[in-house]
């Protein structure tokens, strides 16, 4: 497996792609993306995530108005790949910064100032350092965006009217239709048992 596909393979899994197998129901929407449940408290959401995973669901996602560490542990997404990208960015930036100076001062445009060495590496340190930080910082931001699949102007959850409260004070749990355990009616009924204030279908 190449480095790139190892880096970006996992982010594609849970949220993106076509809906998987589902049973036909009575008045189900034609294109079902998943079922979403709304909670009033973060504790209930974390509890619901535990229960959902215990039930065997894997392709799930939770939405909160602010970061909750316990939720990340509960949902089990694994460690972030941002640090690796930042490390690569930093190494590339450091090498670029140093060799930019080395090449221009030694190869492309050597200036003999009183016989001093062309490769005066000590005075190359500040710019090497700045380039390391610059590249690592850009890698952190772009890496975060790419791993999060942003920019993505439209996403099925946006079609849920109450979802705009996910950026205020409501907490959401989504089970995607792609989940192998997903059965349209059953999953809906299961989510109603979790203490959610509202459960609704998400259309693709």
């Amino acid at each position: 497996m190449s480095v790139l596909s190892r880096l970006f393979a996992r982010h594609v899994k849970p949220e993106f792609g076509k809906p998987g197998p589902r049973q036909e129901g009575g008045d189900l929407p034609p294109h079902l993306y998943g079922v979403i449940a709304e909670f009033g408290k973060p504790e209930t959401l974390v509890h619901a995530v535990h229960a959902t995973r215990k039930e065997g669901y894997q392709v799930i996602e939770a939405y909160t108005p602010y970061p909750i560490e316990e939720l990340h542990d509960a949902i089990g997404h694994g460690p972030s790949r941002v640090p690796l990208l930042v490390l690569i960015g930093g190494i590339v930036g450091g090498l670029f910064g140093f060799f930019l100076q080395y090449w221009t001062s030694v190869v492309a445009y050597p200036l003999n100032v009183g016989g001093r060495p062309y490769n005066s590496w000590v005075s190359f340190i500040p710019i090497t350092f700045e380039c390391t930080i610059l590249f690592a910082g850009i890698a952190a931001v772009l890496g975060m965006l790419v791993l999060n699949g942003l920019p993505m102007p439209y996403h099925p959850v946006f079609s849920v009217p109450r979802f705009q409260l996910a950026s205020r004070d409501r907490y959401f749990l989504l089970i995607l239709a792609r989940d192998p355990r997903f059965r349209a009616g059953d999953t809906f009924r299961f989510m109603e048992t979790l203490g959610a204030s509202l459960v609704s279908d998400v259309e693709d």
Partner: peptide, 28 residues
């Protein structure tokens, strides 16, 4: 906002990136 949804995955990558940026910006 580029389609930010505040999912658990979003927040996790986001927090990691913020922390690393803070670590980089401090010596900077």
């Amino acid at each position: 906002a580029m389609g930010w949804r505040g999912s658990a995955r979003h927040w996790h990558n986001y927090e990691t990136a913020s922390l690393l940026l803070a670590g980089l910006a401090t010596p900077l």
